[in-house]
Amino acid sequence: MNDSVIAKPGVEASTPAGNDLMLECRELSRVYDEGPADLVVLDQLELKVHAGERVAVVGSSGSGKTTLLNLLGGLDSPSAGEVRVADTVLHKMGDAEIGRFRNRHIGFVYQFHHLLAEFSALENVALPLIIRGSRKRDAEDKARALLDKVGLGPRAEHKPGELSGGERQRAAIARALVTDPSLMLMDEPTGNLDKHTAASILALMDELAASARCAFVIVTHDPALAAHQDRVLRLDNGKLHAE
């Protein structure tokens, strides 16, 4: 796939889409002990994303994009610096607390869907709400509405093994959105989708961003997906640079 990125015309790199700061990284570093020399993946990285803003992060393989997403989602802890989501410092919370926070504020779409094989698409999408404490019927009603939005309504009762790769990815996107997160983290979210389905997912992202309900950070190698966002940042040598 072509790794070049075209910046979206008419959007200034430093212009936020909203006034509310949803995500902030301050001097964020991640260093791994690799024998005689440390491997510096992120080096005092700075990032701000506002509610309603969509930011694409591009970079070569091994540049640290997945490491960055894991830190933003509280799945990993920084070596130095901090990540704030909705003005909450993630790494200062314990595992149980950060799990509850993630359930309420962060949606994560992985490059591979990570759906539970024994559950239907409907059950997979409803599960985060049930974990939160919602009634099963209410959770499934909301899950069904989102599955309809991503074009999976007729397949709601099918298990992941009965779905195509693109259908599984759409179910994963619906699962990430069902909790109305403050921040959406997406790793190649349209990589397994055909053009028509990818367009419908982009339209749904546009709708959420326009209502300023959610901020997006999207890691991608797809220049068309990157160009669709408000800002394109390249991760290089541990730091983010505007394209």
Rank of each mutant, 00 (worst) to 15 (best):
D187K: 12
D194E: 07
S164K: 08
H196Y: 03
F216A: 11
G151A: 05
R168F: 01
D180F: 10
A199F: 00
R137F: 01
A156P: 03
T197N: 15
E162S: 03
H221C: 02
A210G: 09
L193E: 11
K142G: 00
L202K: 08
K159L: 11
A143C: 11
D187W: 14
P189R: 15
A203M: 14
H158V: 05
D187R: 15
V217K: 08
K149T: 03
S164P: 05
K136H: 04
F216R: 07
A156Y: 07
D138Q: 10
L147I: 03
P154M: 08
G166L: 00
Q169V: 05
K159V: 08
H158G: 03
E167K: 01
E167Q: 08
S200A: 09
D206F: 01
P154A: 11
V219I: 14
V178F: 09
G133S: 10
M186F: 15
K195C: 00
L147K: 06
A198I: 13
T220E: 10
R144F: 09
A171Y: 05
P160L: 04
E188Y: 11
A145V: 02
T220G: 12
E162M: 08
G151D: 03
S134N: 01
N192G: 09
E167R: 02
F216Y: 12
P160E: 06
H221P: 01
E188M: 10
A212C: 14
H196L: 11
E167H: 02
R137N: 04
L163G: 01
L204Q: 14
R132G: 15
S200R: 14
D194S: 06
S211K: 14
H196N: 11
E162D: 05
A145N: 04
D206I: 01
N192P: 10
A139R: 00
H221T: 03
M205H: 11
S200Q: 12
D206T: 00
T197W: 09
R170E: 08
A145L: 01
M186N: 14
D138N: 04
H221Q: 06
D180N: 07
R168P: 02
E207S: 15
D187Y: 15
D141Y: 00
E167W: 04
A212D: 14
R213D: 15
S164V: 04
A199M: 03
L204G: 08
A209D: 07
V178Q: 09
R135E: 13
H158F: 12
P181N: 06
S164M: 06
S182K: 13
L177Y: 13
A212Y: 08
P154H: 06
A174E: 05
L193V: 07
I218W: 10
D194T: 05
R168Q: 13
V150N: 04
A210Q: 15
D187N: 15
D222N: 06
A156V: 07
A176Y: 09
H196C: 05
S182F: 08
V150A: 03
D138S: 00
F216P: 07
R170P: 05
A199D: 14
A145R: 05
G165P: 02
I201Q: 13
